Simulated assay, not measured.
Amino acid sequence: MIIKRVGSIAAIAIVGALALSSCASNEAAPSSSGSASSSKAVSGTINGIGSSAQGVAETTWAAGFQTANPDATVNYDPQGSGAGRTSFISGAANFAGSDAALSDDELKSTFAGCAAGSKAVDLPVYISPIAIAYNVSGVTDLTLDADSIAGIFKGTIKKWNDAAITKLNPDAKLPDAAITVVHRSDDSGTTFNFTQYLASQAKSTWTAEASQTFPFKVGDAAKGTSGVADAVKNSTNSVTYIDESGAGDLAIAKLMVGGTATKISADGAAAVVAKSPLVTGRESNDLAINIDRTLTDKGDWPMVLVSYLIACDTYKDAKVGKVVKAYATYAASSEGQKAAAAQAGSAPLTDKLSADVATAAATIK
């Protein structure tokens, strides 16, 4: 999927939904060159590559941004977070969408599209809970904890009626059937966040470090959010980890958090992010978040991903920088966040984080 200029019926429908979402709010969108409330339109084309989890949100942001800026074009290709970062570093993309911030080593790269001596910045624009989506014969209500999830995806728990699962689900009719694990085949920020959660919360079972690539040879592999969703839909007794926006009609397991079986929620994901600190040792306009996976307050959903718009702080082409700056500002605005929440089911940034991203985006040149 490549998102281009608004013109299709689907895109018009998204714009309508965006407008309805905006009108329903009592909060005014912040004034910026990217906001639909601004009179200062920008022009030019920018190309992004990256996170498939961001795909619906990017469609929504592009629709609203291009409506407010008729001479601007936003192209976004959801090849995956790893492909996005690689393409941005090489200069093949003007910005990246990534479910993981740039690593310290990546920050040392020479960014082909950035001005000499400038750096890249990580701007959080999308928050979503990671779901454990399943298709199990006769099961519509399932609870799992970190250890059972780790056992399933490591391959040490092989059947749905394993004692570790039945203990958490005493009333469920779990089949005596093999578990088909489905994981991402590509370099994925969703995989990174998922494995980071397990490495933190299931240390006795999950023996691998957090990784962009799935670390164990178990089950079936599929590319992208839509790929793992389709694989589970078409395979009985299967399970995957997935950005909630891509789960569709698949059943989603509850997660044991602090001893309570907790339903997945965007609010719970947002709460965890709001209570988590920034990564230390970075520039003031780099807002990479160090997610605290140990939080267990009521409703918290610590299996969460924060997805970033990665941009140059100074572009070689100032015209490109102006459009990226406006687009990032719009994506993080109250207007953009509410539209994405309505279409993708993401968790809107808090007012403080939205303001912090706007301040950071304002430094882009």
Rank of each mutant, 00 (worst) to 15 (best):
A202S: 10
I157M: 03
G97K: 02
V320K: 01
K263L: 07
A68S: 13
L20E: 10
A341F: 08
A96K: 03
M256D: 12
T166S: 14
K352P: 01
G80W: 07
R282M: 11
A112P: 04
I2Y: 01
G321F: 01
W301R: 01
A116K: 13
S265P: 06
W301A: 03
V218N: 05
G97Q: 01
S51V: 11
S31L: 14
G155E: 06
G248N: 13
V74H: 04
A68L: 07
K119H: 15
S103L: 13
F214Q: 06
V74Y: 04
N47S: 14
Q79V: 09
A116L: 11
T166G: 08
K254E: 12
A164Q: 12
V42S: 02
A331V: 09
V323G: 02
F95Y: 15
Y134D: 08
E283F: 03
V218R: 04
G189K: 04
D297L: 08
P129D: 11
A115W: 05
A83N: 10
N135E: 11
I165G: 02
G345Y: 07
S39L: 11
T296L: 05
K322F: 09
N169G: 09
A199G: 07
S265M: 12
N47Y: 10
S38E: 04
K4E: 14
A101H: 06
A274G: 08
D292L: 01
I310A: 01
T363V: 10
G227T: 12
S22R: 12
V139E: 06
T262V: 11
A326D: 07
V279H: 00
G224K: 02
P302C: 09
V125Y: 06
G151I: 11
G84K: 02
S226H: 11
I89Y: 01
S31D: 14
F111A: 06
S211I: 03
G80A: 11
L174E: 08
A341K: 03
